[in-house]
Write a protein that binds this DNA or RNA. Structure first.
Lengths: 228, 228
DNA sequence: CTGACTTTAGGAACGTGTTCCGAAAGTAGC
DNA sequence: GCTACTTTCGGAACACGTTCCTAAAGTCAG
């Protein structure tokens, strides 16, 4: 609100001077999140944090999603970078797992994530995860097409796990997990019926990392076969 | 909540008679969707379709998500069932692809989908997709743990592709696809920089089915190795 | 100084899902 | 018939993201 050093400037700017800016909005959003928590970030709250009308924000940001996209970069940029192992396969797996964890710790994955978005948005200091996957694919001998397909496949797998888990966790937290059937008709769906109630207790925990390794191996083998 | 038959009287019911029921709400929702389209389903619209106050619905459904979960069964149950090929790998791939397509044609995947939800919710006539995957895994020799892990992995991959694609499509339709960077620092992210603008044009179309085959092969190979 | 022009501000309003709470409408016992 | 109890109804209200539209506040030309 203060320190508007524009009175003496001979700028060609015309019109009413802005009372805030996109940069100020982002800073205030980060401050609000760090202080009150992720779920307290609403447009009206953010506006009053800035001492500004809610509508005013919409002259500097397109909508809330636009804001969230910027906050993703802020969040991912602050994460630590683990060392990437040697060997194409392990490098891909570790980089992908880091990407997974980065997204898992971000509440608004569902609102924002697009493959191109993630890759095209982040600052280079945070893109080592994508780079690690591409480097591993290249080291293995993948073509550019195969590398991109590999990344996209990992991306889908990762986003799916993030969203399903986040959604399930939210329902559990709210005590809203419905009691779904665990008894099935053995004639029509025998394998499902054989699993029955065991379904819910089996292999929930390690599905992502174990599946990721199998996925990467399968994709690399497929790439080899394609080039043969 | 139902049939509080404390006495042997013909009607033990007391209190004001309900003006609608959960079943009527679901029927009206389907009618509304079939007539006016998916995006026209709102709580207030649905209530006025029934000639009822909006609040009244909340005495029969928990919230909108509860309603959507029921509608998923309706939608999936109406789909055609393709023949499943022989051989564990192909059967898994075809069944998974059918599951994928079923979800891709359903607008509210992001709001509702949980692994257990999908499996535990559907009627047996619609569970042939899950059964096909489990049958293929079993035929291949997977343990129950491995079968469930395989299904979950495929599920994550599928849900991720559905949501990312739906989200991207929505942004394109609204003309809101931001112009993300396609030029990267060749020193810090050389492989990404080498791809550059080609990123967006490469291998978008066939990522899911091709990746799915590689994924299934990798998971089955991993299961073999585990049991060796 | 005055009037035209340009740019931003933000109150009011809309539609959304959802909750609070008093009113309404039935049954059961006296 | 009256009272108590039980169950459902639904208007009013809330917080949310978002849009419309008018007022405000600056620059610039005369």
């Amino acid at each position: 609100m203060e320190s508007m050093s524009s009175s003496a400037a001979p700028t060609g700017r015309t019109g009413r001077p802005p009372v805030t800016s996109r940069a100020e909005i982002l800073t205030a959003a980060r401050r609000l999140i760090d202080r009150d928590g992720w779920d307290k970030l609403t447009i009206r709250r953010l506006a009053s944090e800035l001492g500004v009308g809610a509508t005013t924000l919409y002259h500097h940001i397109r909508d809330k999603e636009d804001l969230l996209v910027q906050l993703l970069e802020y969040h991912v940029g602050r994460l630590d970078r683990p060392p990437l192992p040697d060997g194409p396969r392990d490098r891909i797996v570790v980089a992908a797992a880091a990407m997974h964890d980065a997204l898992a710790s971000w509440p608004w994955a569902a609102e924002v994530l697009t493959t191109d978005g993630f890759v095209g948005l982040l600052d280079e200091s945070a893109l080592w995860m994508v780079e690690g996957i591409l480097a591993g694919a290249d080291e293995h001998g993948c073509t550019p097409e195969q590398s991109v397909r590999l990344f996209r496949s990992i991306w889908y797998y990762t986003v799916g796990e993030i969203l399903v888990r986040a959604h399930t966790a939210r329902r559990v937290e709210e005590g809203r997990l419905p009691e779904f059937r665990t008894v099935f008709d053995a004639d029509r769906v025998p394998h499902l019926a054989a699993l029955g109630a065991r379904w819910r207790t089996l292999a929930v925990r390690d599905t992502y990392p174990v599946g990721l390794q199998a996925f990467v191996d399968g994709l690399l083998a497929q790439a080899d076969a394609e080039r043969a």
